[in-house]
Amino acid sequence: MANPYQVTPPQAPRRRSGGGIVAFVVLALIVGGIYGASRWLGKDDGKPAASASASASASAKPTKSSDPGNPESSSDTSSSWKVGDCGGPDPENQPDGYRPQKCSASGATFKAIDIKDASMFPGSIQCPPGTDLMIQVSISYGNSKKGGIPTNTLCGRNLSGDHPGDPGAGGGQLVQGDCVTDQAQEVPCATAGSGSSKVLGLVKQKSECPSGTTEPMQLTMAIGRPYDVICTDG
């Protein structure tokens, strides 16, 4: 006799085959989207969209800035400079190009005496005394030899006997022993006229000037510059 309280459970609903199709379509769309993005970010031939250039060139002529903390400088698109390396003009990128060369090569004109990190503020980069030129080192992409992303700053010293970066010579960055006009413009000490004075120190505050200072020059504020006062003997 059948149990009157027994309830026959309903049959489980039959799984529709369409759900598997939908899941497959969604998965295919995701995979296709990833593949399309990868193709968009790269070249069609499978090569990367950008490659580091090994060429060396300068795209800017050396310019003299009125800021005593920003000396003559230029730019180079080689990213492999080391202290002790030499370089010279790049004949393939005249008139402002530079490229690494052996120090014994006839075309070598300077040697790297220090390598600094790149900076958005040129005045914040301080090269060692005796630096005759500063070269912005960049890495470029594609076949372009100009421009690029700054990576380092090369502090160079001429291989010849001409050293404008030496104290008192009138070039390079301002250092102790240089001479300046009453407008804080660096001039060669040998030809400095009346109104010029010798730099005794470069400090943040006038109270930090060394003894013998008679005319401390307060400079306008410059981001990154390590000093704000030029201590001179008047």
Rank of each mutant, 00 (worst) to 15 (best):
S140R: 07
K82Q: 14
G177S: 11
C127L: 10
S66M: 15
Q94C: 07
G195Q: 01
A105E: 10
T213M: 04
K198A: 09
Y5G: 11
S124A: 15
T131V: 12
A58K: 01
P95M: 08
G195H: 02
G147I: 06
P91W: 03
N3T: 00
G87C: 05
D96I: 12
S79V: 09
D178K: 04
N3V: 01
G69Q: 02
Q176C: 07
D228S: 14
P48Y: 03
G123E: 15
D117S: 13
P164W: 10
N3P: 01
A23F: 11
K116G: 03
G123D: 15
P68Y: 01
A105F: 03
T151F: 11
V203N: 03
S194K: 12
S80A: 15
C209N: 00
E186C: 00
P4D: 00
S144F: 04
P167W: 11
M134E: 12
G97F: 07
Q173G: 14
G168T: 10
S196E: 02
T131P: 10
R99V: 09
A52F: 09
V180E: 01
A169V: 08
E186V: 12
N70E: 15
V199L: 05
T153A: 13
C86V: 11
D178M: 07
R157P: 05
S79E: 10
G69S: 09
P122G: 06
A184M: 04
A50E: 13
N70D: 15
I135V: 13
P71Q: 05
V137Y: 01
S197A: 13
L159F: 05
V25E: 01
Q218H: 04
S51R: 08
V180K: 05
D44P: 07
M134D: 04
N158I: 00
D166N: 12
G172W: 06
T8H: 07
L133T: 04
T77L: 03
L200S: 00
D85E: 12
W81L: 12
L200C: 00
A23N: 09
P48T: 03
N3S: 08
S119A: 08
D117V: 06
H163D: 06
Q176R: 14
T8I: 15
R16N: 13
T153F: 11
L159I: 04
K145C: 04
V31T: 07
S194L: 05
P188I: 03
